Simulated scan of single mutants.
Amino acid sequence: MPQLIATDLDGTILFDRKVPPADLDAMRRWRAAGNLLVVDTGKSVFATRDTLEPEGVAFDYAVAFTGAVLADGDYRVLTSRFLPDGLAHEIVMSLQGIDGLTVFATTLETDYIISDTYHEVSPILQVFVPMTPEEMSGHRFIGVPMRVRDDDVRERIVADLAGRWGEWIEVVRNQEFLDVVPAGATKGAGLNDLVAWLTRPDGPHPGESVETWTFGDSWNDIPMHEAADHAVALPWSPPEVAAVCERTAASMAELVDSLLEPRGHATEEGR
């Protein structure tokens, strides 16, 4: 039975755009042992590549855009879902004039920045192309990420977006970001979609049972954890995240070491 680790990026294996060497080695050992490594992230495919390639991170599959897109280890898109035509523009226009907010819009190929009141770059999303709301016409958008630090402003935005377009969107929190993605898209739904894709009759693992482990620290990881056979949080995860996990691990290296340890030995240690 194949084993699969699905890992979040920022705050989990990625810190100020760097991957700790021990974690990088652990992920290589995990794959060398015949297991699957999946990155399950709110980032776009473009941002995932921009972040991970310089760090030498190789993986088997990516669940990107908070579950709206599946890609392989070469960043080739396997499946994708988009916001309804014109909706990203409507959402962007509804956010104009709000102070303390940076608004992005993402296509399959590019992360665009639409407006910025912080005038600084977040380490979570650093590479983007300027775009005006008027230039959004003719593009198909998967999501509208926004950086918003103030909790009250964040809550008002979530309530407003859900009240207006709740039938067509999900609004997911990740640290100081909110990600607006197509309805039904979550990290958990993306993980389920990937397992179904892997085990379909003509898939890479037809008819097999895939044992899934998830590793993530933030609120948008909760659906991913809930979809997994085994969910692991980080010691600094918010209580709501830790509550849906069976345990914590301080690093990817610690998690991989515990899973690659012979099960019999682990059982004896646990007695």
Rank of each mutant, 00 (worst) to 15 (best):
S218R: 07
N174M: 03
P20K: 01
I113S: 09
T117Y: 12
P54R: 06
I222G: 01
E53T: 11
S94C: 13
A68P: 08
S94L: 10
S258D: 06
N192R: 13
T41P: 03
Y112M: 07
T66E: 15
T12A: 01
D221L: 06
D221P: 07
E90V: 10
G216T: 03
V103E: 12
V148R: 13
A233L: 02
V121T: 14
D60K: 02
R149H: 14
E155V: 09
T79E: 11
M136D: 05
L87N: 13
P235N: 04
L260K: 00
E176A: 13
R154T: 15
L108E: 10
N220L: 05
G97K: 12
A266T: 07
W165E: 06
L36N: 01
D25P: 02
D23E: 03
Y75D: 01
V180S: 06
D10Y: 07
D25G: 06
A253V: 00
L191W: 01
M93I: 13
R28Y: 01
K43S: 08
S137D: 15
V144A: 13
A228C: 06
T117V: 12
V158H: 06
G97F: 14
D217A: 05
R17L: 09
A249E: 08
S209E: 10
L36W: 02
P145R: 06
S251N: 06
L259R: 01
I222Y: 02
L161M: 08
D85I: 12
G97A: 12
F65S: 14
D99R: 14
M252H: 01
I114Y: 14
I98V: 11
P239V: 04
Q175I: 10
L259K: 00
V256N: 00
P182R: 07
A88Q: 06
R76Y: 00
Q126S: 14
D8L: 05
E176F: 09
E176I: 13
D116N: 10
S122L: 05
I98H: 09
D85E: 09
H225R: 06
T267K: 13
D60E: 04
G203Y: 02
H89S: 12
P204F: 05
G42A: 01
E109S: 12
A47M: 11
V195W: 00
P20C: 01
I157F: 07
V92Y: 11
E155I: 08
T214F: 03
Y118D: 07
